[in-house]
Nucleic acid binder design. Structure first.
Length: 809
RNA sequence: GCCGAGAUGGCGGAACUGGUAGACGCGUCGGACUUAAAAUCCGAUGGGGUUUAUCCCCCGUGUGGGUUCGACUCCCACUCUCGGCACCA
């Protein structure tokens, strides 16, 4: 038998798979469609990251296993190439993104090809391709037509030194990630998608979708539903009112002040004349700070008095109104009623400005002393000083007071969400232009469908694609692009020059995959109904909120508009863990980044795939060690060497039940994506084979080796294909069914029973499986080791079938 | 601060619904093959004690308590690590 040369074998089969098109979506047949999706990568130009390969291998194993279970598995791949990540890289190396991205596309696909995943290479999707982003723009127009896309002034991060808008991710601790200067905020008109309309549904559906609890909780917290009440207070000597949202109104007998956000629209109207100066100054200062900076200041509260008061209807307390930046304009109503005894921030503010603290809840331990330090501020307890609420538990009191306030007409029960509408405008170059036209007469008009796509102009000069600090994107300088005619009145008009957020590109890509050959619709109706929703989606947990939530939102909207017949895009989502190297996070600065190419060249894709899946639990992540990689290479060579004696006759063995136990065990592990233990079972099987094969008949050899190929096929697709052929089987192992095990044979005939005395292991005995307590007790009592301990009277005997017998003395 | 995940030999990690802790692999040590090395193969390998030896005993899953015949697994309190969010009223 030849030596194992992975380069030849892997190349050979990759070409064969390609020619025979066994992984292509069957657009006519396919009785059991199964959409196995992995998160498409954003190509970083430095090439495929081993983290990508880790995720994709785990997903591919699942897809290959499902194919062997008889499903028509569709496993597509594409590139999330539009966006700031790619653009920043191009800027860094001083090259035009258009050129960089052409190069990375080729590089990425070549690398992905080498990993041996069962992709349908005919259905690739690249977000920067006009035939794709045409439909991203179409989605925007749909959003606009259905009232879910709108424009509003928003506060964005701004770096005064780089003169550009920054995304939240680019601001680290209040500083610009590139030049380290302090960032400020700027109010700019932006396009938004009304995801908050779907907040409740996004939350509700979490109850039934098959996702891990961890990810569901992540989404739930992000949506951040809080139930409470909006209470409206009259401002004294004024026509104005202030409405405050609170989720713990039961403490309102202890309310002693009201605080407004600097962004609060009526701040100046509420402020008394002689306080205007100071209030204005404070607001100006606050505006210059980013949210992050406000937070960084920590517990020290600042603020300024407006000179006005409002009345607490419950107590008649005259509450002074302050402006402070710890109240955020976009949260709740932008106004908060201060209860210093039972909210830490309110307490800190009250101390700063010497406001009264009134205790209205004692602790469950009965402490009702004066609240004079932070540690004593309590959020729950039994009501006191609250008239008709006294002695009620605070939760009970909450219901009662809300009804009371509503009945009195002072307020209205409200639900508040942390989730904010999705700002999709980006003042950048490398994205799909937002397909809107502004006309002096007609206002904003969407680009008609027949005129899509609005092509991203191919700007020749590299310098012209850089953000320039005008607050407008690079497209604003392209006259030919900006100047257009209004689709409505045919008059002169201007195009929107912002592009959309890269998350818009990725929020619907899975819908495109099965329909890539259609150029007149984003997704064909029949095709979509057949293949979607996605059956299994595997990807990183870091996308728990943004990407997954946006995709769910868009799917719901498309469902509402009648384009698709389902409202959840991913029937099942599985979040894998993080891959690290020798205890440390991989990073370029540390120089410990693993380049998968090198390892594939050295050890072969099969060995790398196996090792990636073996080094830890797929859900938890794992720690890459080069020595471990070498060990796996050794294992693959060992497997290869087993096939040298095919056809040799031995005297035969009685018991091949381990074959069945292996099938059973590996299957069970794959089903729960516990790939590392599945591989361990395959290794044990190989060890057993090496020890026992000398006695096998030719048939027994074949049975064992075929089984080995089949259970290993999802993990190591090339070598198993080669060995499968060597055994004389027909192409392809990947179209063969998963092996069946015999239920009777997986049962052990003999079992080892642990014998315990007072819970301590004293002996083990080998008995027939299923032996009764009486039989086992008899054998156990005869054991010398046990006898020693059974001199005292046995009080109790505990027996677990096939497991344990325990004597209590 | 809040939410989530985790802590097991020299190392990566196993242990399904409480039932023989350390599967599988790495590393190390010893041996075989070889002029030699690499590669390969065989054996040993949690710590401690005891024994000529087989045996046997004790201690061991981050810390402290609890429940149980029996706890890595369940309960309470705490420490540390990683990931996410962060003044959400």
């Amino acid at each position: 038998m030849k030596k194992y040369i992975h380069e030849d074998i892997e190349k050979k089969w990759q070409e064969r798979w390609h020619e025979s098109a066994i992984y292509q979506l069957d657009s006519k047949g396919a009785n059991n469609p199964y959409f196995n999706l992995m998160m498409f990568p954003y190509p970083s130009a430095e090439g495929l990251h081993v983290g990508n390969m880790y995720a994709f291998t785990g997903s591919d194993i699942w897809g290959r296993y499902m194919r062997m279970q008889g499903y028509d598995v569709f496993e597509p791949i594409g590139l999330d190439g539009f966006g700031i990540h790619s653009e920043n890289y191009a800027i860094k190396i001083g090259e035009h993104i258009r050129d960089v991205s052409k190069r990375t596309e080729k590089h990425f696909y070549e690398q992905l090809m080498m990993t041996g995943n069962q992709y349908d290479w005919t259905r690739r999707v690249e977000t920067y391709n006009p035939n794709y982003y045409k439909w991203t723009q179409w989605l925007f127009v749909q959003m606009y037509r259905h009232g879910l896309a709108y424009r509003k002034k928003a506060t964005v991060n701004w770096c005064p030194s780089c003169k550009t808008v920054l995304s939240d991710e680019q601001v680290e601790g209040g500083k610009c990630e590139r030049c380290k200067s302090e960032t400020t905020t700027k109010d700019m008109e932006q396009w938004f998608w009304r995801i908050t309309d779907y907040a409740d549904r996004l939350l509700k559906n979490l109850e039934w979708i098959n996702w891990s609890e961890e990810v569901k909780i992540g989404q739930k917290n992000w949506i951040g539903k809080s139930v409470g009440i909006n209470i409206t207070y009259k401002v004294q000597d004024s026509e104005e009112t202030v409405t405050c949202f609170t989720s713990y109104p039961e403490t309102n007998f202890g309310a002693t002040f009201v605080v407004l956000a600097p962004e609060y629209p009526e701040v100046l109207k509420i402020t008394k004349k002689n306080h205007l100066n100071e209030v204005n100054k404070y607001i100006e200062k606050a505006k210059k700070k980013a949210d992050i900076e406000r937070i960084a200041e920590g517990k020290k509260k600042t603020g300024v008095f407006t000179g006005s008061y409002c009345l607490n209807q419950l107590t008649g307390y005259k509450m002074p109104i302050y402006v402070t930046d710890f109240v955020l304009g976009h949260v709740g109503t932008g106004a908060v009623v201060g209860v210093p005894g039972h909210d830490l921030r309110d307490f800190q503010f009250a101390k700063q400005f010497d406001l009264e603290v009134i205790r209205v809840m004692k602790t469950y331990d009965g402490d009702e002393s004066v609240i004079d330090k932070e540690e004593k501020v309590n959020h729950d307890g039994i009501m006191m000083n609250s008239e008709f609420l006294d002695d009620l538990d605070h939760k009970e009191a909450r219901e009662k007071i809300m009804d009371y306030i509503e009945k009195k007409g002072w307020g209205k029960k409200t639900v508040n969400y942390k989730l904010r509408d999705w700002c999709i405008s980006r003042q950048r170059y490398w994205g799909p232009p937002i397909p809107m036209i502004h006309c002096q007469k007609c206002g904003w008009v969407p680009v008609p469908e027949k005129d899509l796509p609005v092509l991203l102009p191919d700007i020749e000069k590299f310098e012209d694609v850089l953000p320039d600090g005008s607050g407008l994107g690079p497209l604003a300088k392209q006259k030919d692009f900006v100047e257009t005619t209004c689709p409505k009145c045919k008059g002169k008009a201007e195009r929107e020059t912002d592009v959309s957020d890269p998350f818009v590109d990725s929020c619907w890509y899975f819908l495109r995959y099965p329909s890539t050959e259609f150029d007149y619709v984003p997704f064909d109706k029949k095709r979509t109904e057949k293949w979607l929703p996605v059956d299994m989606y595997i990807g990183g947990k870091e996308h728990t909120v943004l990407h997954l939530l946006y995709s769910r939102f868009v799917t719901m909207a498309l469902n509402d508009w009648g384009f698709i017949n389902f409202e959840e895009p991913f029937e099942r989502f599985f979040g894998h863990g993080l891959l690290i190297k020798e205890g440390a996070k991989m990073s370029k600065s540390k120089g410990n980044v693993i380049n998968p190419d090198e390892y594939i060249q050295k050890y072969g894709a099969d060995a790398v795939r196996l090792y990636l899946m073996f080094l830890g639990d797929f859900e938890q992540g794992g720690d890459w060690r080069d020595t471990g990689m070498r060990g796996m290479h050794r294992f693959v060579k060992k497997v290869w060497s087993l096939f040298k004696d095919i056809g040799e006759e031995g005297k035969g063995v009685k018991n091949m039940s381990i074959v069945h136990r292996t099938i059973f065990g590996v299957e069970k592990d794959i089903k729960r994506l516990s790939y590392n233990t599945a591989i361990a079972k395959i290794m044990s099987f190989v060890n057993w084979y090496k020890e026992s094969a000398k006695d096998f008949t030719a048939n027994e050899r074949t049975e064992a080796l075929e089984t080995l190929c089949l259970v290993m096929a999802p993990f190591a697709p090339h070598i198993t294909e080669e060995l499968w052929e060597k055994l004389g089987n027909k192409y392809s192992i990947h179209q063969h069914g998963w092996p069946k095990y015999n239920k009777d044979l997986i049962k052990e005939e003999e079992v080892t029973i642990a014998v315990q005395i007072n819970g301590k292991l004293r002996d083990t005995i080998l008995v027939q499986a299923g032996a009764s307590q009486r039989e086992i007790e008899k054998v156990a009592r005869e054991s010398e080791k046990v006898k020693k301990y059974l001199k005292q009277k046995v009080k109790k005997v505990i027996f677990v079938k096939d497991k344990i017998i325990s004597f209590v003395v």
